[in-house]
Every structure is written in C-alpha cells, then in structure tokens.
C-alpha cells in the first residue's frame, strides 16, 4: 500500500518571476520503505521535502498520505531538519517534548516518553542541559528523538547526516533504519534528502534521482540489496556507480 504519494508536483517561487524550481515530480513510498531523494545542490530537494510535509503549498499537484490530501503539517508526518533546528532556549528534554505539543498527554507522561527516547538515543545525562553544550552529532540525535517521540508514521529528513562526522552518522543511520524496519514500531516510511550517494545506496529501497533547473525525475531506481548492506560489497559498489552515472549530466 502506498504511504506517501507525490503526484505531479510543480513549484515556482512567487517572488521570483517565473523561476520554475520543480517541474513535474511524481513518486510514492510503500510500507516499511526507505526512499531517498538525490540530486544536484540547488535543484529543489529541500523545497520538495517541505511540500511533502505540508509546509509549502505546491503550485500544482498533490501530496497524498494513505490516499488523503496533505495540505498542512499533520500528526503522522514528522520532520528532521538539516541543522537539527533545536530551540536554543529550551533544555533537551523540553525540545523533545515540543514533538508532543499537539497531543493531549499529561505533562508527566510527556516527560516519561521524552526521557525514554533520549535514553534510546544515548543522551541520558544531557536531558536538562541546553543544546548549546552538545556536539553536532548529539544535537542531531535530539532532533531525531524529537521527530520520533510522537510515534509518527512517516519521517521526512533533509540531509540529516550531512554535517555529522562519519562515525556518528553511521550509528544514527542505523537507529533510523532499525526503527523503520522493526514492524512492531509505528514508523511506516522514511523519505530522506541527501547528496551522499553511498549513504543513499546503503539505506534506500528506492532512490529518486532528480535533474537540475527545473528539477525533474531522471529515474526512480529500486535497490534490492539485502540489509544490512556492506559498502565493500561488489553489488553495492556497482549500484553506487550506477547512481553516480545517472547524476552526472
């Protein structure tokens, strides 16, 4: 069953006279599927992800979530920002609780859930600290915890690992992938924007490769390699080369 369908999305920024950013993009994600969007920088990936999230209205086309149109951010779809986007004036636990803002839970229940997920992301000891003392990797873990604390069905991630060192990135990637593939948990789909081909091939069931200006879908590539994927594997390397070939003009 399709979780998210992106149907004929077009987008032009109103203020820039007819600079078409996204032309006609369609793809979908299935249950327990990890889908990546990859393309040259400035091609409109972040814009597309924000359209999917309901943050920006498309000029034409539709976003569907289990068949229902998404016109504004909804509870089941969560978001991980590129720069973690924590609120500097809130402690880490309060930042995670922001993810529960729209729920009716009592404050002590919110606290319990937030503490649990912070522990899962190995942030115990930093619950009551402010984000400014955390490293970039820890900040992003709080950002992911905030996105997952409400048990969303879908998370959208905008280059979530691009500013982390490789070791931190690797463990966080696994955490997200395991959350998705674990069928006892609520998460049904992940859409990730990235420009890192290896990362995309390691994680994705499906890669949407975009072209530049205005961006169009060049190809939607399925990756059938079994998880966990080994970057030194011959098939892995072959897939990486294929994606690279598609990306170069």
């Amino acid at each position: 069953m399709e979780v998210i369908s992106v149907a004929n999305i077009k987008f032009t920024f109103e203020d820039k006279a007819s600079a078409k950013i996204i032309d006609d993009i369609s793809f979908s994600t299935g249950e327990y599927e990890f889908v990546s969007i990859i393309g040259p920088s400035g091609c409109g990936k972040s814009t597309l992800l924000r359209i999917i999230a309901g943050l920006i209205a498309p000029t034409a086309g539709k976003i569907l979530y289990y068949g229902n149109a998404v016109t504004e951010p909804i509870k089941d779809i969560s978001f991980v920002f590129q720069d973690s986007a924590l609120l500097p004036w809130l402690t880490n636990i309060e930042n995670v609780k922001i993810g529960l803002s729209s729920t009716d839970l009592k404050d002590n229940v919110k606290n319990k859930k937030a503490l649990e997920i912070l522990k899962r992301f190995e942030l115990n000891g930093f619950e009551y600290a402010y984000p400014n003392i955390l490293s970039g990797g820890m900040k992003q873990r709080v950002g992911v915890a905030r996105a997952l604390v409400s048990d969303p069905k879908v998370i959208l991630m905008d280059e979530p690992f691009s500013s982390l060192d490789e070791l931190t990135a690797r463990s966080l990637r696994n955490e997200v992938l395991n959350t998705l593939k674990d069928k006892s948990l609520s998460l049904m789909s992940v859409i990730m924007v990235s420009h890192n081909v290896e990362e995309v091939v390691e994680l994705s069931d499906k890669v949407v490769i975009l072209s530049n200006k205005p961006s169009l879908v060049k190809e939607i590539k399925k990756i059938d390699l079994p998880y966990p994927r080994n970057r030194h594997d011959k098939d892995f390397q072959k897939t990486v080369d294929e994606v690279f070939a598609k990306l170069s003009p």
């Binding site: 951010p73 969560s78 978001f79 986007a85 609120l87 809130l90 309060e94 922001i98 803002s101 729209s102």
Partner: peptide
C-alpha cells in the same frame, strides 16, 4: 522556529510559553 512550530503543530499557550 516557524517550521518547527508548524511541523510539530505547537499552538496556543505552549507556543507562547515555549
């Protein structure tokens, strides 16, 4: 701030306070 507020649908009193 704007996007965080919208994504996590922070409204009303919580939005003012936090």
């Amino acid at each position: 701030i704007d996007e965080v507020k919208k994504i996590f649908r922070v409204k009303g009193l919580i939005a003012w306070r936090k």
